[in-house]
């Protein structure tokens, strides 16, 4: 193994920016949306799911190392990349140029949404010390509240659509940047396929939102504090 020069490190960081968007962030997004869709099955099932995660060992480490740091890195690099470009989509209004522009816009939107989303869920949970089985009633309560107002629904709708688009289009960009998609037709077909994936993810998220909004049930902890399984 050779040592890398400064400019090669920059190259590596840009490559990692593209990679972290897929692994782990993209994978997490899929997992997160999929897991939360348990709410559409029923609130008990959903609570069971949350309890399962919140009782995982080393949860904090996993969250910080596999989710928070990659997201921070990806965001930081994302702003750096976006800063380097100059939009010209009104002059060259080609579909791909729209995607390029939207990718940067949605990146910013998702970042803001995450500040809001984490700030209203994960942070209060940590600050108020809601752990293990106490977390699920707390979080479900917050979601019921947020999904009861139109402003809350709008924020989540924009956030989910932006995140799923950003992921689907980012997957396409990743495949090109890493040289997995070469041919013109392959690029076009994959672009369509990935957009379809994004659409499914978005519907998944919207369905979960709808479940919260239509049926705002609150729950009690399965076990109270101090008890174990």
């Amino acid at each position: 193994m050779k040592t890398l020069s400064k400019s090669e490190i920059q190259f590596l960081l840009l490559k990692l920016h593209s990679l972290t968007g897929i692994i782990p962030i993209g994978l997490f997004l899929v997992f997160h949306l999929g897991f939360n869709s348990l709410r559409t099955v029923g609130v008990q099932q959903y609570q069971f799911g949350i309890d399962l995660i919140n009782n995982m060992p080393y949860l904090l480490w996993i969250e910080v190392l596999c989710i928070h740091i990659p997201i921070l890195f990806h965001s930081f690099m994302g702003f750096y990349v976006a800063y380097q470009g100059k939009f010209n989509v009104f002059r060259y209004a080609y579909p791909r140029n729209w995607m390029y522009t939207l990718q940067r816009v949605t990146g910013g939107v998702v970042f803001l949404f995450l500040v809001y989303h984490i700030g209203t869920t994960l942070f209060p949970k940590m600050i108020e010390g809601k752990h293990l089985f106490e977390a699920s009633p707390f979080l479900i309560g917050i979601m019921n509240e947020q999904m009861s107002t139109w402003s809350g629904r709008l924020i989540y709708l924009v956030g989910i659509l932006s995140a799923t688009f950003h992921f689907a289009n980012g997957l396409w960009g990743f495949c090109i940047s890493w040289g997995l998609l070469i041919g013109k037709d392959a690029q076009r077909n994959a672009g369509i396929a990935f957009m379809f994936v994004g659409l499914v993810l978005a519907l998944w998220g919207v369905a979960t939102m709808a479940a919260f909004a239509l049926d705002p049930v609150s729950v009690e902890p399965v076990f109270s504090k101090g008890m174990s399984l």
Partner: peptide, 16 residues
């Protein structure tokens, strides 16, 4: 290097 291939944003206007 800096300004190399990793800075491409895949807007694809070039080919258009």
């Amino acid at each position: 290097k800096e300004g190399g291939i990793a800075n491409c944003g895949n807007a694809q206007n070039c080919a258009a």
